[in-house]
């Protein structure tokens, strides 16, 4: 059973976060509560960290209402890309060594080819 907290605890944990802001985040689809039980929304650690990030982007970094979804979307895209990359690496790792090595060597070769040459 993953660790879940209530909305009041979320507010207590993230300095400056308000119930109003949480509602805005949920309505905009930026924050997705883990589940609702007896009319109360519950949050996972990931949601707490994300709520803190959104609050900081809005408050500390003064991102406007137009910029915030753009930034969040870019962050999500980056994590999506990295997640897939790690899946791919995990699949490579699962291969026996004599299959793995040529893949890695090809990868390094491509990287070296794609790296601009340095002036000596």
């Amino acid at each position: 059973m993953p660790h879940m907290i209530r909305e009041s605890d979320l507010i207590a944990q993230v300095t400056g976060l308000t119930r109003h802001e949480i509602r805005l985040c949920i309505e905009s689809g930026w924050l997705v509560p883990a589940e609702e039980r007896d009319g109360e929304r519950l949050y996972l650690d990931v949601d707490v960290a994300r709520a803190r990030l959104i609050h900081e982007l809005r408050d500390d970094l003064a991102l406007g209402e137009d910029a915030l979804p753009v930034v969040l979307s870019l962050i999500d895209q980056l994590h999506t890309a990295r997640f897939r990359l790690h899946l791919l690496l995990d699949a490579v790792r699962a291969q026996p060594e004599d299959h793995r090595t040529p893949v890695l060597e090809t990868l390094l070769k491509r990287l070296s080819e794609a790296t601009p040459k340095r002036e000596l």
Binding site: V32, D45, V46, A49, R50, I75, D76, H79, T80
Partner: peptide, 24 residues
């Protein structure tokens, strides 16, 4: 303190990854 990036690629972060109009 825990940053979002520490969760984003874990199991819990699934719901925020590759949502319609985003990653895929």
């Amino acid at each position: 303190r825990q940053f979002y990036r520490q969760y984003a690629e874990g199991n819990e972060g699934f719901k925020y990854r590759g949502r319609p109009g985003q990653g895929f």
